[in-house]
Every structure is written in structure tokens, then in C-alpha cells.
């Protein structure tokens, strides 16, 4: 088996790739943690408007340390800033934006994604204290649900699977997966490989994936800026 640690994409590269697909003018929600990185890589000329579910649209970057205003935070409870065009709203309106289908894209992390688009990302199901936040609302509602993730778990187990063994966040919701090795769409109950990094042979990619990877037309090279590695 190939050692992927030397060839896989960094989180910044995965986030960069996900950012390339965000259309100009799109309303976008980024999950807490790794997915937030996508905001750093908006392509020139494409302006996305970011939504954070605690009640802010179109916010600015993190303030300098010491300049935080703790009434102005994102869903990850990190300080953000105002910018021209920012708006505030209460929680019921915020989730009306979500459930009402007004968001174009939500990008989340994942424990497991099944070939039918089921997503598990809120609980490993191994005890502990459950905490769901807004993930279950987001995955049922945005028009495009994308996942950014390592292709395999830290132990090397596939994250793309035939069916999820962990508690579900949503059923049949994921439309595209950006992994550390590939870009995979979910279409008609199966994984369709769109791009893969040139360094990984097809057989190895398949063996690191827990369900059949189908192709539908060309599989393009997944090439990301080297400086983000």
C-alpha cells in the first residue's frame, strides 16, 4: 500500500480547492473549524457572502488580538469584524435562511460519508456528551452540501463508505466531497470520481475508499498551489 502521508493535500490545499467552486454572489455557510479555512481562498473576482448561524451575514476577518468585541462572534465563538454590508438577525431568521433554501452552499467536516450522500459528522456514537449545534439544519437545507475532509481517518480507515456506521447528521444530503486525495461527487446513490491527485494510482485510491468509485467522463488531475502544502 502506498504511503499517502507524503503525497496527500494539506488542509489549506483542500480548502483552496473547495473555494474554487464557490460562485460569485453565493451565500455560503462554513462549518466550525477546518471548513472556516475556505474563506481565505476566495478566487479573484468571485465574491461570496458568508453566513454564520448565530446571526451575521457578510462579516469581516478576525480582529487583531486585543481588539475583540465579544458581542461580535461567529458560530465557532471566535471574534469577527464588521465590514460594509454586514447585517444582523435573530436565530429564528438565521435558520429560516438555512431551512428556507436561501443558502447556496454549506461546507462541513465529516466522520463518514456514504455513497448515497448520508453524512455522519456530529457524534461518534461511542458515548460522551452529544452536541449537534446547527449541522442537522444546514445539511438538510442548503442547495449544495460539500464536505472537506481527509480521505481516511487518522487510523487509515476509509471515510467514504457504503453506509455510515456512526449516527447520521442527515440522509442523502452530501453533493460533493473534497478530500486530501480526490474530488468525489455523490450522484444517484454512488460515488463519482471527478479529480484525483496525480501521485496516487487509481487502484490505491480505490483501496482507500470504502465503496466503489465510479467514473463518468474524464478524471481530472487535482492540482493545488504548492505553497499551501
Amino acid at each position: 500500500m502506498i504511503d499517502i502521508s507524503q503525497i496527500k493535500l494539506s488542509n489549506a490545499q483542500i480548502a483552496w480547492r473547495a473555494a474554487q467552486d464557490i460562485e460569485d454572489g453565493a451565500y455560503v455557510n462554513l462549518g466550525i473549524g477546518f471548513p472556516e479555512m475556505v474563506a481565505q481562498f476566495q478566487p479573484e473576482g468571485k465574491q461570496a457572502i458568508f453566513h454564520t448561524e448565530n446571526g451575521v451575514l457578510d462579516f469581516g476577518k478576525a480582529p487583531e488580538p486585543g481588539n475583540e468585541d465579544w458581542d461580535l462572534i461567529n458560530a465557532g465563538k471566535k471574534a469577527i469584524t464588521l465590514k460594509p454590508g454586514t447585517s444582523f438577525f435573530h436565530h429564528a431568521d438565521s435558520f429560516a435562511m438555512v431551512r428556507g433554501g436561501h443558502l447556496d452552499v454549506a461546507i462541513l467536516g465529516a466522520y463518514q460519508i456514504a455513497q448515497n450522500g448520508d453524512l455522519a459528522n456530529w457524534s461518534t456514537g461511542k458515548g460522551g456528551i452529544p452536541a449537534v449545534g446547527g449541522a442537522m439544519d444546514l445539511v438538510q437545507s442548503a442547495r449544495r452540501i460539500a464536505v472537506v475532509t481527509d480521505h481516511v481517518t487518522k487510523k487509515g480507515d476509509p471515510k467514504l463508505v457504503e453506509s455510515c456506521t456512526m449516527p447520521l447528521t442527515g440522509v442523502g444530503c452530501v453533493t460533493r466531497i473534497y478530500t486530501s486525495l480526490a474530488v468525489v461527487d455523490v450522484a444517484e446513490g454512488r460515488f463519482v470520481l471527478r479529480e484525483k491527485i496525480p501521485a496516487i494510482p487509481m487502484d490505491d485510491l480505490q483501496s482507500l475508499t470504502g465503496a466503489q468509485l465510479h467514473t463518468d467522463g474524464a478524471v481530472n488531475d487535482l492540482v493545488c498551489p504548492a505553497e499551501l502544502a
Binding site: 448561524e53 435573530h90 436565530h91 429564528a92 438565521s94 435558520f95 438555512v98 431551512r99 449537534v132 449545534g133 446547527g134 449541522a135 442537522m136 439544519d137 438538510q140 437545507s141 442527515g170
Partner: peptide
């Protein structure tokens, strides 16, 4: 779920005993 929590509270304040949501 967070949006369901907000909407259950809103419904309580608006006199709506129940509603349907795709969430969860």
C-alpha cells in the same frame, strides 16, 4: 438541533403548537 431549537421557541411565542421541519 440549533435551528429546531430557535423555531420551537419562536413557535411557542407565536402560538403555533407544532410544525414540520426537514432537520434531523
Amino acid at each position: 438541533p440549533q435551528g429546531t431549537l430557535a423555531e420551537r421557541i419562536r413557535a411557542g411565542g407565536a402560538g403555533i403548537p407544532a410544525f414540520y421541519t426537514p432537520t434531523a
